[in-house]
Design a binder for these strands. Structure first.
Lengths: 337, 337
DNA sequence: TTGAAAGCGGTACCAG
DNA sequence: CTGGTACCGCTTTCAA
C-alpha cells in the first residue's frame, strides 16, 4: 500500500530513520520512534518484500523440499511440514514448497534466483539425490533425517539408534531375553533412512545384552493389517511376550486387540513399547510406554540451525541427533526369560 | 550468481535487450537472441527474484492457506497441496505455505507486503474466517471448496451435489427404491463444506425419484471401524442392498469385507458406488463404480483462474463447479425395489 | 531492432 | 541521534 517514504513524511523524519527504527539496527530516540510507529500503524505500512530482498541480504523465506514417495505415511509427513512451517514463522520466515518435480531442479532454481535464504530437506532417502545438490550449493541446507553418506552435510534428527537402545534396555532390565520388533513396511527399510537406524540400534543393543530379536515387517508397500495380525499371533504362539513397536497407529491397535483377545494384559502378562511414534499413543485403548518422535522438536532445531546460518554464524557440517525421551505408562511387565 | 549486466556484456548488447530477449516482450533479432542465450547458459544466469519482484509487477508466487483441522484427512489434504503445487509450478509459480497461525494474519501479511500474486484457499469451512479477509483484499483469492456465504468469491470445486444426483440416478435406474449413504465422520458434516453438499444432492434427487435414503456417519471424530461395521450389518439386516459410499479407503474395505463375509456379491446381489473418493478405488479388492474426486482437476482449474487474474484478465466472482465423471466398473446389480 | 536511463522501495554506509 | 544518498538487479518507457 504505502511506502517507507510516506511513513517518513508522515512522521517528519528521513526514510533512513524509519528503516532503522523498524529494524532496530541503530538507536532511535524514544520520541521519534513513537512518531514513526504511529505513522506506520496509521498508514498500515508493510515493507515490500521484493524491495527488501533486493536491498537487504535476506528474503526471509526457507524452501522446504518434500519428495512424497508412494510409501510415505501422509499424516506423519504432514506433521513435519506443519511443524517446519510453524517453527519458521515463529522466527520470521515463510516456507516455500518444493515438490518432487525434480527436487534438484527446484533447489537449484530457488538458490540461484536467491528466492530463499536456506533449504530444509524432508523425507530423506538413504541415497537421496538432494545430497549432491546440497553439497554443490552455497545456500545453507539442513536435512531433517540422515542420508547414508552425510559427510559435509548438516542433519537433524531424532537419534533412532538410541531409541532402539533405550527400548531394548528397558525390556532387558525387566528380564526378557527375547523380544519382537514389530516394524514398518518392508519398502521403508530400503527407501527411508530412519527405520533401519532404529532396527540397527535394537539389534546392536540386543546383541550386547544377550537378547534375541525377532524382526517383523508390516506388509510390502502399505501396512497390511492381515500380515500384522498373523505376525503377532505367530509371535505369541512362539511364546514372545515383549514387543517394541515401530509402526503407524493401526499396527498398535491390531497388536493391542490381539493381546486383548488372548486375555493377555499389557504391563502384566506382556510388555509393549512404542518406539518413535509420531502420533498420540495416549489415545490408544491401552496406555503404553512410548519413546515419541516429536516433529516439532526436529523441525525447530533444524529451523534454528538455518536461522543461525542465515544470520552469519559459521559452524561445521554436523549430524545433530536428538536424545530420545522415554515416557513410561506402565506397560512393562516382569520378564520370565 | 551473475547479473543481467554480465550477460549483456558477454553478449555485447544492452541489458534491456537481454531483458526483452528473455521475456519475449519485444522482438529481438534471431542473431542477437542466440548470442544472448549462449551467454545466459555459459554464465548460468538466473534472474534474481527480489529484483524482479521490485521492478516487475509480479512475484510469481502464490500463497496456499491450509488450516489443517483435527478432523482433516491427511492423505486427501496432502493430495490437494501437492496437486496445487504441481499445477502452480507448471505455470511458473511457486507455492508459499500459510499454516493456521491465524490464517487471517498470514493472508494480510503476504498480501500487504506484495509477497504473492494470488492466494489459494484450501480446506474450506462452511463459515470460514478467510472469507472475510478475501473480501477485504485486492489480492486475487481462489477458494478450492465452497463456503456457505460465497457471494463475491471465486470458488472452484467438484460439484458434490451433482455427484449425489448421479449416484442416486444410477441406483434408481437400476430399480432400487431404498439406498444407504455411507458417509463421513459426523464432525465433517459441520466443519467441512463438501460432505453436506453431497448429502443434500443425494437427498434431493432421492426425493425426486421416490427413493428412501438411510444416511450413516462413520464415527465421531476419527473414522471408527467398529461403528462402520455395525452400521453396515444393521443395514444389511434391514434388507438394504444399495450403497453410496462417501468415505475414506478403510470404510470401503470394511463394507466390502462385510459383504464378502455374508456371501453377497457386488454387482450381483448388492450395488456399491464410491462417491467423491480421492484415492484409487481400483486398488480395492472388488472393483466398484466410482465418481472420483480428482485433486489435480480442482487445483489446476483454480491455478488457471489465479494465473488469468494475475495476468490482468477481469472476470466476476463466481462459483465454478466441475462436472463429476462416472466410472463404471460393474458394481451395480439389478434392484428389486 | 536496439540502447539509455528512470524508477521500483528498501538497506546501510557516510557524514554531520 | 539523524539525514542524505549510493546502490541492489531488473522492467519498461522513451528515443534513436
Amino acid at each position: 500500500m504505502s511506502t517507507i517514504h510516506e511513513v517518513a513524511k508522515a512522521a517528519g523524519v528521513s526514510i533512513s530513520t524509519v528503516s532503522y527504527a523498524l529494524s532496530g539496527k541503530r538507536p532511535v530516540s524514544e520520541k521519534t520512534r513513537l512518531r514513526i510507529e504511529h505513522a506506520v500503524t496509521a498508514l498500515g505500512y508493510q515493507p515490500e518484500a521484493g524491495a527488501r530482498m533486493l536491498a537487504g541480504r535476506r528474503t526471509n523465506i526457507f524452501a522446504l523440499t518434500e519428495p512424497l514417495r508412494a510409501d510415505t505415511h501422509a499424516p506423519t509427513h504432514m506433521a513435519f511440514v506443519l511443524a517446519a512451517a510453524v517453527a519458521a514463522r515463529q522466527r520470521g520466515y515463510d516456507i516455500l514448497l518444493l515438490t518432487d518435480e525434480q527436487a534438484s531442479e527446484g533447489m537449484n532454481r530457488v538458490a540461484a534466483s536467491k528466492l530463499v535464504d536456506a533449504i530444509l530437506v524432508l523425507d530423506v532417502a538413504p541415497d537421496d539425490e538432494r545430497v549432491a545438490i546440497a553439497r554443490s550449493m552455497r545456500t545453507p541446507t539442513i536435512f531433517i533425517g540422515v542420508p547414508d553418506d552425510h559427510s559435509d552435510l548438516t542433519c537433524v534428527d531424532l537419534d533412532f539408534g538410541a531409541v532402539g537402545h533405550l527400548a531394548v534396555d528397558r525390556l532387558a532390565d525387566a528380564g526378557y531375553s527375547r523380544i519382537v520388533l514389530l516394524g514398518q513396511t518392508e519398502v521403508s527399510y530400503r527407501k527411508s533412512n530412519f527405520p533401519r537406524r532404529l532396527l540397527h540400534g535394537v539389534q546392536a543393543r540386543a546383541a550386547e545384552r544377550g537378547v534375541d530379536v525377532a524382526w517383523v515387517t508390516t506388509g510390502e508397500i502399505a501396512t497390511d493389517i492381515a500380515v500384522v495380525r498373523s505376525a503377532v499371533e505367530t509371535a505369541l504362539d512362539n511364546g514372545e511376550r515383549a514387543f517394541i513397536v515401530h509402526a503407524v497407529g493401526d499396527v498398535h491397535e491390531v497388536l493391542l486387540a490381539t493381546l486383548h483377545e488372548r486375555g493377555l494384559r499389557v504391563g502384566v502378562d506382556v510388555s509393549v513399547i512404542s518406539a518413535a511414534a509420531s502420533f498420540d499413543t495416549t489415545a490408544l485403548p491401552v496406555k503404553i510406554d512410548t519413546i515419541p518422535l516429536v516433529p516439532q522438536r526436529s523441525c525447530e532445531y533444524a529451523v534454528d540451525l538455518a536461522v543461525r546460518h542465515v544470520e552469519g554464524e559459521r559452524f561445521l557440517p554436523e549430524v545433530h541427533l536428538l536424545d530420545p525421551e522415554y515416557l513410561a505408562a506402565g506397560s512393562i511387565a516382569p520378564g520370565r526369560g
